[in-house]
Nucleic acid binder design. Structure first.
Length: 301
DNA sequence: AAGAGGGCCAACCGCAGATGG
DNA sequence: GCCATCTGCGGTTGGCCCTCT
């Protein structure tokens, strides 16, 4: 494919936006919406900018309710845990943090969290228990990729969503007590799954009953997610692995779908002796156990 | 005081998926 | 089914600003 034709190099201004340009763009979008065609927008309002540039400026800066800087500890944790789960899917991570943009989160990760973990890794290395962090990070970040890679067409498949904190009862995702409840109910977990790239096949009615209730507007879907909090029950008395493999209520197609877990990948998630593992534990995670519990629970639904 | 170095962030680039003709 | 175009995303870069020496 390649770059959109809107990005012709000729006669397009680059670099920082002036207040005048911001004002023009903001005024237009507030009045008309983005009209679904960013490329056609700049000429309409007399901006010598690429449509993509306008879109980016709006999304990352001019959009209402955008927060900049000052990431809270809770946001920090959410970012870390989601990164561990799904890797550098910044847009998805951003969707869990209202007011934050993927760019912001990406910058935050690259400039702070990464170093934070690197620092930690160095300490661990000095104490003789660390592995190569870069590899660990890659490995961890690629967990989603590797575990769901479709061998035949090499396409990316859905990623595992974050697992709730393993408390005995109704553990929410780490979030600030002052924040809105974000991800609530099994339904929203499913939605998150779908959002994470999950496209359950049409006959995966396990999901579809919920999916059909989703609003079409992606932004309202996000809002819907935010307005809820997660509730995942504590682990059942039966073995999670049993539940994973043997639950007779599970639609066979679902069991065989891309959402099943193989043990090799679970070991990857386990992240033995690496920084993320300790990070997880610090946050109260036992990856394998949690993943098992979570998938078991999801399949029983 | 000034130069060097590093941190941080806004913006750009290029790719891939989605969509429509 | 193919092609052109648009949109969205993640990686990278350029430049400003702050801190250190």
């Amino acid at each position: 494919m390649g770059s959109a034709p809107c990005c012709e190099k000729t006669n397009v201004k680059k670099g920082p936006w002036s207040p005048e340009e911001d004002a023009k763009l903001k005024a237009y979008i507030e009045m008309h919406g983005n009209a679904g065609n960013w490329i056609a927008l700049p000429p309409k309002i007399g901006l010598k900018r690429c449509g993509k540039s306008c879109r980016l400026r709006w999304l990352n800066y001019l959009r209402p309710n955008i927060k900049h800087g000052g990431f809270s500890e809770e946001e920090d944790k959410i970012i870390r845990s989601l990164y561990i789960s799904i890797g550098s899917r910044w847009s998805i991570i951003a969707a869990q943090l209202p007011g934050r943009t993927d760019n912001d989160i990406k910058n935050y990760w690259n400039t702070r969290l990464k170093k934070k973990l690197l620092g930690k890794q160095c300490k661990e290395k000095q104490s003789g228990r660390g592995n190569n962090l870069e590899q660990d990070m890659k490995r961890s970040a690629n967990v989603g990729d590797s575990m769901v890679q479709d061998d035949h067409n090499n396409k990316k498949s859905p990623y595992w969503p974050e697992l709730p904190v393993p408390e005995a009862t109704a553990p929410p995702l780490p979030h600030s007590s002052t924040q809105d409840h974000r991800i609530d109910s099994q339904a929203s977990v499913r939605r998150l799954l779908i959002k994470l790239g999950g496209r359950f096949s049409d006959d995966d009615h396990v999901i579809n009953d919920e999916e059909t209730t989703l609003p079409n507007d992606p932004s309202s879907t996000d809002q819907h997610l935010y307005e809820q909090t997660i509730y995942i029950p504590s682990s059942s008395s039966s073995s999670p692995m049993d539940a994973l493999n043997l639950n007779n209520n599970i639609d066979a197609k679902f069991v065989n779908s891309q959402y099943t877990i193989d043990e090799a990948n679970l070991h990857m998630l386990q992240g033995k002796n690496n920084t993320f593992s300790s990070e997880l534990q610090e946050m109260g995670y036992n990856s394998t156990q949690r993943l098992m519990e979570w998938s078991s629970y999801m399949m029983k639904k």
